[in-house]
Design a protein around this nucleic acid. Structure first.
Lengths: 344, 344
DNA sequence: ATACTCTATGCAATGGATTGCACAATATAA
DNA sequence: TTATATTGTGCAATCCATTGCATAGAGTAT
């Protein structure tokens, strides 16, 4: 097993001290050009590279940030990651990516590991099963920037970047109303998460604004996947509710709903208009394209990264930032009752 | 700025030495139960956590592995990541995920950073622009396990896990021939990558096996995206070649091809059958579902992780492993000429 | 009471890089 | 030639946890 090269090896070889080597490698002005050149050559020859752990130990800083998402293989989250990296990589930060798999237990473990790694900050979208929040407070206690994105927890001195989900819920609902719908079913996911309660709030506010009574029996619950969407569609169809639109708080649910409606020969959007949420890529690949709400995950990632940088660069790591990104309605065939050909 | 708690803080508080604290925290049998209890309580009270950098420095091991993919937001790669994590997380390894963005330069930087981090091994799918391979050899020189997955480079003492792409190319082509096609256009991506040369090889072998002449003019080049697929479809249609099938070495290309054929009123699969590669999730969400080759990325990730563990646990880190995973044909509407309804 | 085990703990070095302070060597000024 | 700057290096402590070796103190046997 070959030993790794250290500055001591270089020093011995050149008959100088490690201190000089260190200064030379860091291009200190105290060191003569001749020595610098010597050191650089020797370093190359011995294929030396710095030991980041020694650095971290000495300096207390790592230039690493922790990034925690529920799942990495969702378009939404992987694009957030892209955005964060894009912003942080040029500034010399390494992004350590972890997935919680929606497990509170794993989320705790990850944060423990991040703290052990002495990361300079944590960016996180909380797992939907998370109830306790000790692990978040630990981050704050250690004076590290804590930035939530999309899904947040209520933690003092933390920041967050989120979509204006209330607005998202509103514009989707308003759009359906504009299309002439009034009996709009709403399918929600776990109401424990801020994003879903906010979308729901937007839905209700929009109904009220348009003078339409909110009807509890038009609200359904599902998980964010296709099968669950199919199931809820069957529920809706077999209920007494005489609906003319379904607003799903997830594109996957919407897709399942559309598949089921199609099989049951319900015409979309004429009998029932459908709207999803998140603007997953598949929404425009479908033969019957799906109207959805774009959340700009890439921008969200960049924004979260910038908040982190802000906090790092200001004296006080814990100024709270709160950023809301505007969602955008992407109108497609599944909800557009007139002029379909125009948008084909 | 609050200082972080160390074992010395705990030692001072309890009037014992750091050595004792360290042993107590590691549940050493040398330490009495009473002392252990005291230490554990104090540690909790001071919200102590281990400094991994000190550990790494001392032990020379980090229990971290580097995982490098071209892009994180591709279904194929993100599922490989899932597989790797699934296998390595329970064994106490942290997976550091990086994306090269298909840039040789960034790939080099990442590997440099991984070495600085003293990772215990590297799993990588090489960027398609990578030509030099010094950075890979550096890993081997440092006696670290190097495992390629999907896209590999030719490096001595490294291991690799790949799809049997030749077989993939064969079964897709054979399927098209079985459907009665004989003038099969082939669309390839960057032939610098092993995966694409192998798929191409499979295509040619299959033609030969079936006594069909290989025709150079039926081979087209494109990038792995929808727009490029549309473009190549236009090329194919406007060429003299009178084809009855298009085998695309990427699902994204196949999707673009299908969109374009549809617009030009070419019937799929009756006039032209289409087959893709990778079995991206959208292939079965389309109205006209796309036949494709499943590569089981999740399994590939698990397999790569197991190779890493094998190498770690054997004395010699550089036994070469070479694993080929069997691809699977997923037959869908885009290529199935008869009995379409059966598969609806 | 003496000699001899154990048991539980302390001491000190180690790993790699940084950095304030001291100092030698050289250059400049008087 | 002597005093004074100016450069370029070296010394040693530090960051935190681990661990081989030494040892104090308690317990046991004779």
């Amino acid at each position: 097993m070959k030993k790794k090269t250290t500055i001591y090896d270089i020093a011995t070889k050149l008959n100088i001290t490690a201190a000089t080597v260190s200064r030379a490698l860091n291009d200190s002005e105290l060191i003569s050009k001749k020595t610098k050149k010597m050191v650089l050559e020797a370093a190359d020859e011995l294929s030396y590279f710095k030991n980041r752990h020694a650095l971290a130990l000495k300096s207390g800083r790592t230039n690493q940030v922790g990034l925690v998402v529920p799942f990495i293989n969702r378009h939404f989250f992987s694009n957030i990651i892209m955005g964060v990296e894009e912003e942080l990589y040029p500034k010399g930060y390494q992004v350590m990516i972890f997935q919680s798999n929606e497990s509170e237990r794993k989320e705790k473990d990850i944060i423990e590991a991040l703290l052990q790694n002495q990361v300079d900050g944590v960016l996180i979208s909380v797992s939907k099963t998370t109830r306790i929040k000790d692990h978040f407070n630990k981050i704050i206690d250690n004076n590290l920037p804590l930035i939530f994105f999309d899904r947040k927890a209520d933690i003092e001195n933390s920041s967050c970047v989120e979509t204006d989900d209330v607005l998202g819920g509103k514009i989707a609902t308003q759009h359906l109303i504009d299309q002439g719908c009034s009996q709009i079913a709403y399918v929600t996911v776990d109401l424990n998460l801020n994003i879903y309660t906010n979308r729901f709030k937007g839905y209700k506010e929009s109904l009220k604004y348009n003078g339409i009574d909110f009807r509890k029996e038009l609200v359904f619950q599902a998980n964010s996947d296709i099968a669950s969407g199919r199931k809820v569609a069957r529920q809706i169809l077999s209920s007494d509710a005489n609906i003319d639109a379904i607003f799903c708080s997830s594109d996957y649910i919407a897709l399942g709903v559309m598949q089921e409606l199609k099989e049951q020969n319900v015409s979309i959007p004429d009998d029932v208009a459908v709207v999803g949420f998140s603007n997953e890529p598949f929404t425009e690949l479908l033969d019957l394209t799906l109207t959805s709400i774009e959340q700009s995950p890439y921008e969200m990632g960049k924004s979260a990264a910038r908040v982190f940088l802000d906090q790092m660069n200001s004296k006080n790591a814990n100024i709270e930032h709160a950023i809301k990104l505007k969602p955008k309605l992407c109108i497609r065939d599944s909800s557009l009752k007139n002029n379909r050909t125009m948008h084909k």
